[in-house]
Design a binder for these strands. Sequence first.
DNA 1: AATGCAGTTGAAAATCACTTGCAATTAGTT
DNA 2: AACTAATTGCAAGTGATTTTCAACTGCATT
Lengths: 141, 141
Amino acid sequence: MSKATALHHDYETLLREAGVRITKQRQAILKIIADAADHPDAMEIYNRASALDASVSLPTVYRTMKTLEENGAIRRHTFEGGPSRFEHADSEHHDHLIDVDTGSVIEFTSPKIEALQREIAEELGYDIIHHRLEIYGKRRR
Amino acid sequence: MSKATALHHDYETLLREAGVRITKQRQAILKIIADAADHPDAMEIYNRASALDASVSLPTVYRTMKTLEENGAIRRHTFEGGPSRFEHADSEHHDHLIDVDTGSVIEFTSPKIEALQREIAEELGYDIIHHRLEIYGKRRR
DNA sequence: AATGCAGTTGAAAATCACTTGCAATTAGTT
DNA sequence: AACTAATTGCAAGTGATTTTCAACTGCATT
Ligand SMILES: [Mn+2]
Ligand SMILES: [Mn+2]
Ligand SMILES: [Zn+2]
Ligand SMILES: [Zn+2]
């Protein structure tokens, strides 16, 4: 059993049930998103989706990502310096380490850090809505 | 002895020694930065500096912030959704909690979280260049 | 299967936060 | 005071993303 393999990702049904119409452009974009195992940006999604359906436009990619985000299907990340990058929202929460030389993104989780954040927010009198932890590093050699 | 009071902040000397010319526009901007106890963005710095010297322009604010950043005098933060915000670089490292309702920024430090990040990077075979930890929260009521 | 229409589309223009080109100005050395 | 490279404001340019708008199309309803 592969832990990395994400399940169904039936974004089409999810959106349909949210009253969103499934156009052929959206079908192409949704397929790309469902199959993505990385953190592509809008232009990358546009390029991949264009191969499936040449009628997809960049504004529609942005609109679809926003719709998916509003419906909790995907998460948006804005790593330093670059455009927004997207990933499935149904994966377990994790944070990211970005290789500043290659730009590659490595995921990690730390229950301890998560707990410490809750303690800090608690002490300050806050409830955490969400947080962002990004480590920028260079591969050790 | 107030711990919050930051010291000298002689950005003028710092820049002068870096071979940067001190114009009257820069003097105004540097005074604003030196006196700032918050995390103002470029427009806010422009507004404050304009009150001291009406000849300050927004491009010069941006250029000066970039120069200060390149000389390690200030740090730039890009909190979710907003423009870059700046703060002194000579303060001890800390992370931020942003009140999503008011936009106010609260600073905090967690030696434990810092240590855990080093452990994580270590395990992944990376040296940390820098990191970003932002907690977005709502005041508990 | 045809109709109706609100939701959706692509293309072009707009926006936002910066950044840059350039001619005029000026800080700081000589 | 003269010199000259750094700096300035303004206008134009960028890059990512959003919006406008007229044409098109899902899809619920006949
Ligand atoms: Mn991820
Ligand atoms: Mn701070
Ligand atoms: Zn986390
Ligand atoms: Zn930190």
